[in-house]
């Protein structure tokens, strides 16, 4: 039997909003330690990896490893019935389940809703993501990053990200013209979610499709800050921490200059 009880149902709502537009169906691997999800968009340009450790749950029981093939649109419809402060319980048999139950309990305990969602058979490629030493890490406000991606999308469909010791520059150009947004490494880090820290081993200069970045920033409500990790000729990593019990990590292949 797999059973996981989440005190704050709102977190699961946010996680679904973060993944459902990038990956329609996903394999939720549940083992004794965590629930992990890895999925790619159909063109294999972008990938999302979600990890939620057992300690995020008020109650977590996983007798045998089980993989739940979830249709994220169906799951999202159920979670739209949940309030942020509802308790959400996920339940599934651990011998090749063909369905998963979700129980929503209202905070005052007066309302209980239960749903059964059919699981889907998914045969997607799972990618092995090597641990990588990145040339640059940029930690910044997640709201700021979302704003930059949205604003630059008006000027072009790609953003060039260049990191130097002191700052990170986001540029985009198209028939409207050219736009550059430069963030400077914050000298003092008084409020973490408003400061920008650039940790540079060597300069990077890479170009990425804004369409995917604007899908990644749907995870903005999950964390006040976002960390970008970049290396020349390597996929970009955009990471949102889920408190200290997990993360949502997006990977995006760069555009290759001819």
């Amino acid at each position: 039997m797999f059973e996981a009880k989440l005190q704050q149902g709102g977190l699961l709502k946010k996680i679904l909003e973060s993944v459902k537009d990038l990956v329609v169906d996903g394999l939720w691997d549940c083992d004794g330690a965590a629930i992990t999800l890895q999925g790619m968009d159909s063109s294999h340009v972008a990938l999302v990896e979600m990890l939620l450790r057992a300690e995020a749950f008020e109650h977590y029981r996983c007798d045998r490893n089980v993989t739940l093939g979830m249709n994220h649109n169906h799951l999202s419809k159920i979670l739209k019935c949940a309030n942020n402060d509802d308790i959400v319980i996920l339940k599934a048999a651990d011998q090749n389940p063909d369905s998963c139950s979700l129980i929503l309990e209202s905070k005052n305990g007066e309302k209980t809703s239960d749903f059964v969602v059919s699981l889907v058979r998914i045969d997607t490629d799972q990618l092995g993501i090597p641990e990588t030493e990145y040339s640059a890490h940029v930690k910044m406000s997640s709201g700021e990053f979302q704003r930059i991606c949205r604003d630059l999308s008006q000027f072009g469909d790609a953003v060039q990200i260049t990191c130097s010791k002191q700052d990170v520059k986001f540029s985009s150009s198209g028939e409207t013209g050219k736009a550059n947004i430069t963030l400077t490494h914050s000298a003092t880090v008084d409020k973490e979610e408003e400061s920008v820290t650039v940790d540079l081993k060597e300069p990077v200069d890479l170009t990425f499709a804004l369409r995917f970045l604007n899908l990644f920033t749907k995870a903005t409500p999950i964390s006040d800050t976002v960390t970008l990790s970049l290396s020349q000729e390597a996929p970009l990593v955009v990471e949102y921490k889920i408190g200290d019990s997990g993360h949502i990590r997006y990977f995006l292949a760069p555009k290759i200059q001819e």
Binding site: M40, S43, H44, V45, A46, L47, D125, Q126, L127, G128, I129, P130, A158, T207, A209, A234, P235, F251, A253, P254, K255, I256, Q257, E258
Partner: peptide
Amino acid sequence: GATQGRLDSFFTVV
């Protein structure tokens, strides 16, 4: 012009 890379050329399918 730039062509869009794919993750398969960076990560291995397991």
